[in-house]
Simulated assay, not measured.
Amino acid sequence: MQATVTDHRCDIAVLHLRGELDADTAATLRATLTDLLERPVPRIVVDLTDLKFCDSIGLSTFITSKQVITARGGWLSFAGANQFLQRLLETVGLSHYFAIFPEVDDAIAAGQL
């Protein structure tokens, strides 16, 4: 899995994920999120457009990060999930825990409200 970050207006970071997120690649996600958590008020959109797979280790990394982010007054949302990821998030009940948007621009706009 590859993880890159781009910054947008209003201190919103977009974390672009590409490939497969599993036990072998979760450390890359944790390291990237740890860097983003250093920001005073973390506001993160995770772009799932190019993420093809995510297992329970990946989901757990998102959940743990969201707890820290929320405690610091920030937020973490998802954008661009494919059908597999949408079904996965719904099946495990995370579609009620995370804001999920069709496009990155939608998530950024919602974060500025």
Rank of each mutant, 00 (worst) to 15 (best):
V92P: 02
P42R: 08
P42K: 11
V45T: 12
Q2Y: 09
R87D: 14
F62G: 06
A107F: 00
R18E: 12
T64A: 15
V5Q: 14
A99K: 07
D50S: 14
F101N: 07
G111R: 03
T91K: 06
L59T: 12
A13H: 13
G111I: 12
E20D: 12
R18Q: 14
G74R: 07
D11M: 07
G19I: 12
E103M: 08
I57K: 05
G80I: 02
L21A: 03
L21I: 06
Q2S: 11
A107W: 00
D55T: 05
A107I: 03
T64V: 15
H8I: 05
F98G: 08
A31H: 14
S56P: 02
A79P: 00
R72Q: 15
D105V: 11
T91I: 14
L21G: 07
E20Y: 11
R87F: 00
G58I: 12
I12Q: 01
F62T: 03
A81G: 10
L51F: 03
T70K: 09
D55Y: 09
L59I: 15
V104E: 04
N82K: 12
Y97G: 05
P40D: 12
C10Q: 15
R72M: 10
A23N: 05
I57C: 08
L51T: 11
I100A: 08
K52I: 13
T34K: 09
D105Q: 15
T6C: 05
P40W: 08
K66P: 02
A23S: 14
Q67H: 11
L21E: 00
A3L: 09
D55H: 04
G93W: 04
I100T: 13
T70D: 13
L76Q: 13
A31E: 13
I12W: 00
I69F: 09
R39M: 02
I57G: 04
